[in-house]
Design a binder for these strands. Sequence first.
DNA 1: GATCATAGTCTCGAAAAAGATACTGAAGAT
DNA 2: ATCTTCAGTATCTTTTTCGAGACTATGATC
Lengths: 116, 116
Amino acid sequence: MVTTSEAEALEQHPELADLCPMPDIAKLIGGKWKLIILQILIFKGTKRFNELRRMIPGVTQTMLTNQLRALERDKLVTRKVYAEVPPKVEYTATQRALDLEEMFHAMHNWWLRAGD
Amino acid sequence: MVTTSEAEALEQHPELADLCPMPDIAKLIGGKWKLIILQILIFKGTKRFNELRRMIPGVTQTMLTNQLRALERDKLVTRKVYAEVPPKVEYTATQRALDLEEMFHAMHNWWLRAGD
DNA sequence: GATCATAGTCTCGAAAAAGATACTGAAGAT
DNA sequence: ATCTTCAGTATCTTTTTCGAGACTATGATC
Protein backbone atom coordinates (compact mmCIF):
# COMPACT_ATOMS: atom_id res chain seq x y z
CA MET A 1 0.00 0.00 0.00
CA VAL A 2 1.35 3.41 -0.94
CA THR A 3 0.92 6.00 1.78
CA THR A 4 2.33 9.47 2.18
CA SER A 5 5.17 10.12 4.59
CA GLU A 6 5.22 13.13 6.86
CA ALA A 7 8.02 14.67 4.79
CA GLU A 8 6.19 14.20 1.50
CA ALA A 9 2.97 15.62 2.90
CA LEU A 10 4.72 18.77 4.10
CA GLU A 11 6.64 19.13 0.86
CA GLN A 12 3.53 18.97 -1.26
CA HIS A 13 1.38 20.96 1.17
CA PRO A 14 3.60 23.40 3.06
CA GLU A 15 0.55 25.12 4.54
CA LEU A 16 0.03 22.08 6.75
CA ALA A 17 2.97 23.16 8.89
CA ASP A 18 0.85 25.48 11.04
CA LEU A 19 -1.65 22.79 12.01
CA CYS A 20 -0.87 21.16 15.30
CA PRO A 21 0.09 17.51 15.31
CA MET A 22 -2.98 15.49 16.23
CA PRO A 23 -1.15 12.17 16.47
CA ASP A 24 1.14 13.58 19.16
CA ILE A 25 -1.80 15.03 21.05
CA ALA A 26 -3.68 11.76 20.77
CA LYS A 27 -0.80 9.98 22.44
CA LEU A 28 -1.22 12.19 25.49
CA ILE A 29 -4.98 12.48 25.82
CA GLY A 30 -6.37 9.90 23.39
CA GLY A 31 -8.08 6.65 24.20
CA LYS A 32 -11.31 5.76 25.91
CA TRP A 33 -10.63 6.96 29.45
CA LYS A 34 -8.02 9.72 29.63
CA LEU A 35 -10.31 12.65 28.90
CA ILE A 36 -12.87 11.42 31.43
CA ILE A 37 -10.22 11.07 34.11
CA LEU A 38 -8.69 14.46 33.37
CA GLN A 39 -12.09 16.15 33.28
CA ILE A 40 -12.84 14.94 36.79
CA LEU A 41 -9.42 15.78 38.24
CA ILE A 42 -9.40 19.21 36.58
CA PHE A 43 -12.94 20.30 37.46
CA LYS A 44 -13.59 18.34 40.64
CA GLY A 45 -10.13 18.34 42.17
CA THR A 46 -7.99 15.65 43.73
CA LYS A 47 -9.52 12.17 44.00
CA ARG A 48 -8.58 8.81 45.44
CA PHE A 49 -8.31 5.73 43.27
CA ASN A 50 -11.58 4.11 44.21
CA GLU A 51 -13.35 7.43 44.18
CA LEU A 52 -12.42 7.81 40.54
CA ARG A 53 -13.45 4.25 39.91
CA ARG A 54 -16.93 4.89 41.25
CA MET A 55 -17.26 8.12 39.32
CA ILE A 56 -16.40 6.58 35.97
CA PRO A 57 -19.07 4.18 34.75
CA GLY A 58 -17.73 1.02 33.20
CA VAL A 59 -14.06 1.46 33.96
CA THR A 60 -12.19 -1.53 35.37
CA GLN A 61 -9.42 -1.41 37.95
CA THR A 62 -6.96 -2.57 35.34
CA MET A 63 -7.77 0.17 32.87
CA LEU A 64 -7.94 2.88 35.49
CA THR A 65 -4.49 1.91 36.75
CA ASN A 66 -3.04 1.78 33.23
CA GLN A 67 -4.42 5.14 32.22
CA LEU A 68 -3.40 6.85 35.44
CA ARG A 69 0.12 5.49 35.04
CA ALA A 70 0.28 6.80 31.48
CA LEU A 71 -1.01 10.21 32.56
CA GLU A 72 1.57 10.27 35.32
CA ARG A 73 4.37 9.47 32.87
CA ASP A 74 3.21 12.34 30.68
CA LYS A 75 3.15 14.71 33.66
CA LEU A 76 -0.58 15.29 33.52
CA VAL A 77 -1.34 13.89 36.95
CA THR A 78 0.62 13.42 40.15
CA ARG A 79 0.25 10.43 42.42
CA LYS A 80 0.57 10.69 46.17
CA VAL A 81 0.73 7.56 48.29
CA TYR A 82 -0.06 7.70 52.01
CA ALA A 83 1.62 5.10 54.21
CA GLU A 84 -1.65 3.99 55.81
CA VAL A 85 -3.71 0.87 56.12
CA PRO A 86 -5.94 0.50 54.22
CA PRO A 87 -3.90 2.14 51.46
CA LYS A 88 -4.66 5.67 50.37
CA VAL A 89 -3.55 7.07 47.04
CA GLU A 90 -4.52 10.46 45.71
CA TYR A 91 -4.42 11.69 42.13
CA THR A 92 -4.17 15.35 41.25
CA ALA A 93 -4.13 17.23 37.94
CA THR A 94 -0.85 19.02 37.24
CA GLN A 95 -0.63 22.58 35.91
CA ARG A 96 -0.10 21.14 32.47
CA ALA A 97 -3.44 19.34 32.78
CA LEU A 98 -5.16 22.37 34.29
CA ASP A 99 -4.15 24.26 31.16
CA LEU A 100 -6.54 21.98 29.28
CA GLU A 101 -9.48 23.72 30.95
CA GLU A 102 -9.97 26.06 28.01
CA MET A 103 -10.15 23.12 25.62
CA PHE A 104 -12.70 21.37 27.78
CA HIS A 105 -14.82 24.50 27.87
CA ALA A 106 -14.68 24.83 24.10
CA MET A 107 -15.68 21.19 23.80
CA HIS A 108 -18.53 21.67 26.21
CA ASN A 109 -19.84 24.71 24.35
CA TRP A 110 -19.69 22.84 21.09
CA TRP A 111 -21.56 19.93 22.59
CA LEU A 112 -24.30 22.19 23.91
CA ARG A 113 -24.65 23.93 20.57
CA ALA A 114 -24.59 20.70 18.60
CA GLY A 115 -27.04 18.96 20.89
CA ASP A 116 -30.18 20.64 19.54
CA MET B 1 -16.05 -7.59 37.45
CA VAL B 2 -18.02 -5.00 39.39
CA THR B 3 -18.22 -1.66 37.65
CA THR B 4 -20.32 1.41 38.30
CA SER B 5 -23.33 2.12 36.12
CA GLU B 6 -24.08 5.59 34.84
CA ALA B 7 -27.06 5.83 37.21
CA GLU B 8 -25.04 4.80 40.25
CA ALA B 9 -22.24 7.20 39.43
CA LEU B 10 -24.65 10.15 39.17
CA GLU B 11 -26.47 9.11 42.32
CA GLN B 12 -23.31 8.97 44.39
CA HIS B 13 -21.72 11.99 42.70
CA PRO B 14 -24.47 14.38 41.57
CA GLU B 15 -21.88 17.07 40.79
CA LEU B 16 -20.84 15.01 37.77
CA ALA B 17 -24.03 16.03 35.98
CA ASP B 18 -22.52 19.29 34.70
CA LEU B 19 -19.54 17.61 33.03
CA CYS B 20 -20.10 16.94 29.38
CA PRO B 21 -20.25 13.33 28.25
CA MET B 22 -16.85 12.37 26.86
CA PRO B 23 -17.96 8.96 25.55
CA ASP B 24 -20.58 10.63 23.35
CA ILE B 25 -18.06 13.16 22.08
CA ALA B 26 -15.53 10.43 21.43
CA LYS B 27 -18.03 8.66 19.21
CA LEU B 28 -18.16 11.73 16.98
CA ILE B 29 -14.55 12.88 16.88
CA GLY B 30 -12.57 10.06 18.48
CA GLY B 31 -10.20 7.65 16.80
CA LYS B 32 -6.96 8.00 14.98
CA TRP B 33 -8.03 9.99 11.91
CA LYS B 34 -11.13 12.08 12.49
CA LEU B 35 -9.49 15.07 14.14
CA ILE B 36 -6.82 15.21 11.45
CA ILE B 37 -9.41 15.13 8.69
CA LEU B 38 -11.60 17.74 10.36
CA GLN B 39 -8.62 19.98 11.06
CA ILE B 40 -7.76 20.08 7.37
CA LEU B 41 -11.31 20.57 6.14
CA ILE B 42 -12.00 23.27 8.74
CA PHE B 43 -8.80 25.29 8.35
CA LYS B 44 -7.85 24.55 4.76
CA GLY B 45 -11.29 24.26 3.17
CA THR B 46 -12.87 21.77 0.81
CA LYS B 47 -10.66 18.95 -0.43
CA ARG B 48 -10.92 16.04 -2.83
CA PHE B 49 -10.45 12.46 -1.71
CA ASN B 50 -6.94 11.93 -3.00
CA GLU B 51 -5.92 15.39 -1.93
CA LEU B 52 -6.78 14.46 1.65
CA ARG B 53 -5.01 11.16 1.21
CA ARG B 54 -1.78 12.88 0.24
CA MET B 55 -2.09 15.41 3.05
CA ILE B 56 -2.48 12.80 5.77
CA PRO B 57 0.67 10.76 6.32
CA GLY B 58 0.05 7.07 6.76
CA VAL B 59 -3.66 6.95 6.06
CA THR B 60 -4.90 4.19 3.76
CA GLN B 61 -7.74 4.47 1.25
CA THR B 62 -9.82 2.11 3.32
CA MET B 63 -9.50 4.09 6.53
CA LEU B 64 -9.99 7.42 4.84
CA THR B 65 -13.19 6.16 3.25
CA ASN B 66 -14.47 4.71 6.53
CA GLN B 67 -13.77 7.82 8.54
CA LEU B 68 -15.24 10.16 5.94
CA ARG B 69 -18.37 8.02 5.81
CA ALA B 70 -18.68 8.15 9.59
CA LEU B 71 -18.18 11.91 9.63
CA GLU B 72 -20.81 12.24 6.94
CA ARG B 73 -23.29 10.18 8.96
CA ASP B 74 -22.68 12.46 11.93
CA LYS B 75 -23.21 15.56 9.78
CA LEU B 76 -19.69 16.85 10.22
CA VAL B 77 -18.77 16.73 6.54
CA THR B 78 -20.70 16.82 3.30
CA ARG B 79 -19.78 14.80 0.26
CA LYS B 80 -20.25 16.09 -3.25
CA VAL B 81 -19.85 13.75 -6.19
CA TYR B 82 -19.25 15.14 -9.67
CA ALA B 83 -20.44 13.03 -12.59
CA GLU B 84 -17.09 13.10 -14.35
CA VAL B 85 -14.44 10.71 -15.51
CA PRO B 86 -12.11 10.27 -13.76
CA PRO B 87 -14.30 10.55 -10.67
CA LYS B 88 -14.25 13.70 -8.57
CA VAL B 89 -15.54 13.82 -5.03
CA GLU B 90 -15.26 16.79 -2.73
CA TYR B 91 -15.48 16.86 1.03
CA THR B 92 -16.46 19.96 2.98
CA ALA B 93 -16.80 20.72 6.69
CA THR B 94 -20.36 21.50 7.79
CA GLN B 95 -21.23 24.36 10.10
CA ARG B 96 -21.36 21.89 12.95
CA ALA B 97 -17.74 20.99 12.21
CA LEU B 98 -16.73 24.63 11.73
CA ASP B 99 -18.00 25.26 15.27
CA LEU B 100 -15.12 23.07 16.45
CA GLU B 101 -12.67 25.80 15.46
CA GLU B 102 -12.57 27.20 18.98
CA MET B 103 -11.73 23.78 20.39
CA PHE B 104 -8.93 23.33 17.88
CA HIS B 105 -7.48 26.70 18.81
CA ALA B 106 -7.60 25.83 22.51
CA MET B 107 -5.87 22.56 21.74
CA HIS B 108 -3.24 24.30 19.67
CA ASN B 109 -2.54 26.86 22.39
CA TRP B 110 -2.20 24.10 24.93
CA TRP B 111 0.18 22.24 22.70
CA LEU B 112 2.35 25.30 22.17
CA ARG B 113 2.46 26.00 25.89
CA ALA B 114 3.13 22.38 26.79
CA GLY B 115 5.79 21.93 24.15
CA ASP B 116 8.62 23.64 25.99
C1' DG C 1 -1.51 -1.17 -26.54
C1' DA C 2 0.03 -0.28 -21.94
C1' DT C 3 -0.19 2.84 -18.23
C1' DC C 4 -2.01 6.38 -15.16
C1' DA C 5 -5.44 8.77 -12.37
C1' DT C 6 -9.71 8.88 -9.78
C1' DA C 7 -12.58 7.14 -5.86
C1' DG C 8 -13.78 3.84 -4.31
C1' DT C 9 -15.23 -1.76 -2.58
C1' DC C 10 -14.18 -6.35 -0.78
C1' DT C 11 -11.77 -9.71 1.84
C1' DC C 12 -8.44 -11.18 4.97
C1' DG C 13 -5.24 -10.76 8.70
C1' DA C 14 -2.46 -8.29 12.27
C1' DA C 15 -2.02 -5.28 15.97
C1' DA C 16 -3.64 -2.58 19.59
C1' DA C 17 -6.88 -1.52 23.00
C1' DA C 18 -9.87 -2.99 26.31
C1' DG C 19 -11.87 -6.24 29.55
C1' DA C 20 -12.43 -10.43 32.76
C1' DT C 21 -10.73 -12.87 36.45
C1' DA C 22 -7.99 -14.21 40.20
C1' DC C 23 -4.78 -12.85 43.59
C1' DT C 24 -2.31 -9.87 47.39
C1' DG C 25 -2.09 -8.16 52.62
C1' DA C 26 -3.29 -5.76 56.64
C1' DA C 27 -6.83 -3.42 59.40
C1' DG C 28 -11.51 -2.63 60.88
C1' DA C 29 -16.34 -3.94 61.20
C1' DT C 30 -20.01 -7.56 61.84
C1' DA D 1 -14.20 -16.27 62.18
C1' DT D 2 -15.55 -14.15 58.14
C1' DC D 3 -16.34 -10.09 55.31
C1' DT D 4 -15.18 -5.68 53.47
C1' DT D 5 -12.09 -1.84 52.06
C1' DC D 6 -8.15 -0.14 49.73
C1' DA D 7 -5.02 0.00 45.68
C1' DG D 8 -3.25 -2.36 43.21
C1' DT D 9 -0.56 -6.76 39.96
C1' DA D 10 -0.47 -10.68 36.74
C1' DT D 11 -2.33 -13.32 33.19
C1' DC D 12 -5.46 -14.43 29.73
C1' DT D 13 -9.16 -13.57 26.39
C1' DT D 14 -12.13 -10.73 23.69
C1' DT D 15 -13.24 -6.82 20.99
C1' DT D 16 -12.16 -3.10 18.23
C1' DT D 17 -9.36 -0.83 15.25
C1' DC D 18 -6.27 -0.62 11.69
C1' DG D 19 -4.01 -1.96 7.45
C1' DA D 20 -2.46 -4.63 3.08
C1' DG D 21 -3.64 -6.09 -1.28
C1' DA D 22 -6.42 -7.07 -5.11
C1' DC D 23 -10.21 -5.57 -7.85
C1' DT D 24 -13.61 -2.15 -10.39
C1' DA D 25 -14.80 1.50 -14.33
C1' DT D 26 -13.77 5.05 -17.59
C1' DG D 27 -11.25 8.26 -20.18
C1' DA D 28 -6.91 10.52 -21.28
C1' DT D 29 -2.11 10.18 -22.08
C1' DC D 30 2.44 8.16 -23.82
